[in-house]
């Protein structure tokens, strides 16, 4: 059931519908948008955790291959890691995910129409 926004009639005790704020798309505030490059991502989930809106999600359908070679264990290691992406409806463009990403796999670019 999608919550309806109505100011015509006050409910008893001014009770609002749980989770009704989903109708308010704070994404309209954004002046910078994150770009998830899906190249060096190691799947640490930092972007999912630091997002104040919690609007970064893992996309289990789409994956990218991460090739890593460590000094201790020679030879290339290939790992499949799920892509992450943000919900444009709610992202306010604060840039915390890009700042916190340990491998700098997120860029902030100006939002243009």
């Amino acid at each position: 059931m999608s919550p309806k926004l109505s100011m015509d009639k006050l409910s008893v005790g001014c009770v609002a519908m749980p989770g009704g704020s989903l109708v308010y798309k704070t994404g309209a505030w954004r002046s910078m948008r994150p770009v998830f490059k899906h190249a060096a991502c190691i799947g640490c989930r930092a972007c999912e955790l630091v997002c104040p809106e919690g609007c970064v999600f893992e996309n289990p359908q789409e994956k990218h291959v991460l090739v890593s070679s460590k000094e201790k264990s020679p030879g290339e290691k290939k790992r499949e890691i799920a892509n992450r992406d943000f919900d444009p409806d709610y992202c306010k463009g604060c840039g915390m995910c890009a700042n916190e990403c340990p491998v700098k796999d997120i860029d902030m670019v100006p939002e243009v129409k």
């Binding site: 704020s21 109708v23 704070t26 505030w29 104040p52 306010k92 604060c94």
Partner: peptide, 25 residues
């Protein structure tokens, strides 16, 4: 891609400032 907020205690659409540490916490 589908964004599912069903299991959230606090659903987005709240009007905290951008970069709000309180909203994150």
């Amino acid at each position: 891609m589908e964004f599912n907020y069903n299991d959230r205690v606090l659903k987005p659409g709240y009007t905290s400032c951008m970069g709000c540490g309180e909203a994150l916490a």
